[in-house]
Nucleic acid binder design. Structure first.
Lengths: 171, 171
DNA sequence: AGACGAAATGTAATAACATGACAAGAGAGA
DNA sequence: TCTCTCTTGTCATGTTATTACATTTCGTCT
């Protein structure tokens, strides 16, 4: 996987590797974010909203600098901290996630619950699926409890090939 | 956690957060690596061996540039690819692991088995414990199978506070 | 409304992490 | 020895992330 394809890959079905109504999903997510920020007294400022829009629009993991490019196009500031601060806010409040394997960010697929999901990353099409229930996290917590380690955050990512890419290579 | 402490932190008990006989553990690991490379027809060259020694010596996660500094001190080349190539070799052959959360590398704590362990990362002392059995990985594989996703690599890391740092903050 | 403190933003500079490209050297087998 | 492959040395560059500080915006108190 080159860095280039990581940034501009044109394929894949990120939301659980399944097709969906994109404009609806975007509007819903933004509305949910509005409601959530309102409720929690968070300031959902223009940059923050814009970054979330960008992430939702692309619907895949995006590097901070890719986001920064889009911000610039839309007349926002273009220095790295602009993007990183907005991303910090979104991640801190569960509206987006960081994919450590890719050093990239993705909009949260389920704003309704606080969660630390698992991710499945396709190395061919760069689609990223968010796995919400994740029994893996529970398993990890059990191990930690046995060790006396206090978990504050879990990072669970699987890298491999998504169903749709498996089909393509088989044919 | 600053980048500085990440590089030179002086405390912590990385091997499962437990104390151990360090020189023995280092010699054993190097001997095991020698044997393993011999067996598999791998070229365990001086740079590669040196990088493994550095990782074993520090016994914690080390960034590529920290390793590079030590290589330079020992008369090896000092350009980034020197370190990255050796690290690639070690990681590819299970002699070291990359901690994605830290963009850093750590010597493998159990060279005898091929494995993809889980890691517990203390954000106070930067100790990293390797968890070998990891039922979390099994759970992840089950989820993937249900989805039709083909896992090639798993990344399971927990960030939090290790037992010894919990004790310190309590007192 | 005016003053104040906290939070957020704008901007420059720099640090930290990682790869590409190509030349030169070392080892294994014909 | 020739040659092919793997490894190393080196320069250059690309990518990701933070520090520091000035400025603005926003809520709140009076």
């Amino acid at each position: 996987m080159t860095r280039e394809t990581a940034k501009v890959s044109a394929e894949g079905h990120p939301l659980g590797f399944a097709q969906h109504d994109h404009s609806t999903c975007m509007n819903d997510a933004l509305a949910a974010a509005d409601a959530r920020c309102e409720e929690d007294g968070l300031r959902f400022t223009p940059v923050r909203r814009k970054v979330l829009e960008i992430l939702l629009q692309d619907h895949r993991a995006l590097g901070a600098y890719a986001i920064l490019d889009k911000l610039r196009e839309d007349g926002f500031g273009s220095q790295p901290p602009i993007a990183y601060r907005a991303l910090d806010f979104l991640v801190a409040n569960g509206l987006a996630h960081k994919i450590e394997r890719l050093n990239a960010f993705i909009a949260c697929a389920d704003t309704n619950h606080a969660h630390t999901p698992a991710f499945m990353i396709c190395r061919l099409c760069n689609a990223v699926a968010e796995e919400l229930s994740s029994s893996a996290r529970n398993a990890l917590h059990e191990v930690a409890r046995a060790t006396g380690f206090k978990i504050e955050r879990t990072i669970i990512e699987a890298e491999g090939i998504c169903p749709s890419c498996i089909n393509k290579t088989e044919s």
